[in-house]
Simulated scan of single mutants.
Amino acid sequence: MNVDRKLFERKDEILSYMRDRAEESYGEIVRTYGEAEYKKRASGINKKIIATTDNIKSIILQRARSQNWEKEEVLKNILVVTYSSYVIMIEFRNRAWPYEYMAFARRIGELWEPFCKLCFDYPIRSDVELYEAPLFSEVKEQLQEEIRVYINSLNITDDEKENLLEYYDKVWSLVTSGEIKLELDLHFKIDGRKYNIDFKSGFQSNEKGNTNRLLLVASIYKNIVGGDNECMLFVRANEDDNNHYLQTLKNSGIWDVSCGEETYQQISEYSGFNLAGWIQDNIDWSSDLSDDTIQYFRDNDLEKYLTW
């Protein structure tokens, strides 16, 4: 397979190459693990497909640098190779360990998030800059120091200051009784303003724990970290297809929630790339998956989950 700047126009060639590579690897895996070790077969072939994908991406990026490809050429090539790898992963996972509906629905959602993030890993906009999320321990330490300085500056007795600090420490002990992870799925900056993004396939089950965590994290970004911090939730499912936990976040005043088509509009605005249009023109699960795979999905009523 010739990797050039127009590779993204040859999806069938990419699929054929990656399928043949996976077939070679799967033969070795089957000889290593018996039928009863289907989980090891599935894990083994998945790792091989990821390795092949990473190798192709490395070639793309190397040639893009040496040949001065346009940003859009780089992103389109990365997108089509990534999508093709998903097709092959699904085929061989289903061969090694046939999907049931819960695992398949979850897997399609799991693949969607990193796919969307590619638009920010290789943004068309020149002012998009990824950044590392702060550690809660650092945020806590900074706030504690500010509060201690403030309390010590008050015109009260030393005993009163000590009592205030003791109560303050008690409050912190409650807040930090569990780990607080401020890292979300994506963090980027535009013109100094920070955007903290969480991707979600949908809210169809009991999401109480996750909802409470998201409310806490956004509150910390807004009220403690401060500055120009925006917290945005990108949901794949349409708003009407989600339960009340989504509405809790939407009505919180601290999360900017987008669903369905609006999510893709936000991705386009902030990354500079029309991902929805690219998906419409290039992703066709029913045609790209092998005949036996798509037939299995149809027989088991799984094809309906193949929507992005």
Rank of each mutant, 00 (worst) to 15 (best):
G192C: 06
L302D: 00
C119P: 04
D288A: 10
N55T: 12
I197C: 00
E35P: 03
I108N: 00
T248Y: 07
W172D: 05
V81I: 13
A64I: 02
R106A: 12
L233M: 05
L164M: 12
S84H: 07
I283F: 10
G34S: 07
N300C: 01
V80G: 03
R63D: 00
A133P: 04
Y101K: 15
W255F: 06
R213Q: 09
T157M: 03
A276S: 14
D198P: 00
N210F: 11
K71T: 09
I294R: 04
L174C: 10
V257K: 01
C259I: 06
N210H: 12
I190V: 10
E23L: 13
R107T: 13
E166L: 14
K117N: 06
H187E: 08
V171G: 08
S84G: 07
D198Y: 08
E303S: 11
R213E: 08
A133C: 01
A105P: 06
D54Q: 15
S271P: 05
R236L: 10
A218Y: 02
G260T: 04
S271M: 02
D4Y: 07
R10D: 02
N68Y: 12
Y83E: 03
E9L: 12
T263F: 06
L15D: 00
L111M: 14
E262Q: 12
A51S: 15
N229S: 10
Y245C: 03
S173G: 08
L275P: 01
R106D: 06
E146S: 12
D4F: 07
F8M: 02
L186G: 04
E113G: 07
W69A: 05
H187A: 10
I197F: 08
L154D: 02
E35V: 13
N243F: 09
I108R: 01
Y150C: 09
D281I: 07
L249P: 01
G202Q: 11
K11R: 03
I88P: 01
N212W: 10
I279T: 00
F115H: 07
E141M: 12
R125H: 08
G272W: 05
R193M: 08
K208A: 12
E207N: 13
D241E: 11
E230V: 10
V80K: 08
K208R: 15
V3N: 04
K161Y: 02
M89K: 15
A51Q: 13
L302T: 03
L118I: 02
I78F: 00
I254M: 00
S205R: 15
R298S: 12
I49Y: 02
L135S: 13
Y150T: 11
N282S: 10
A36W: 14
D12W: 10
I90P: 01
Y221S: 01
S43P: 05
E73I: 09
F234Q: 08
N55R: 15
Q142N: 14
R193Q: 11
D169Q: 15
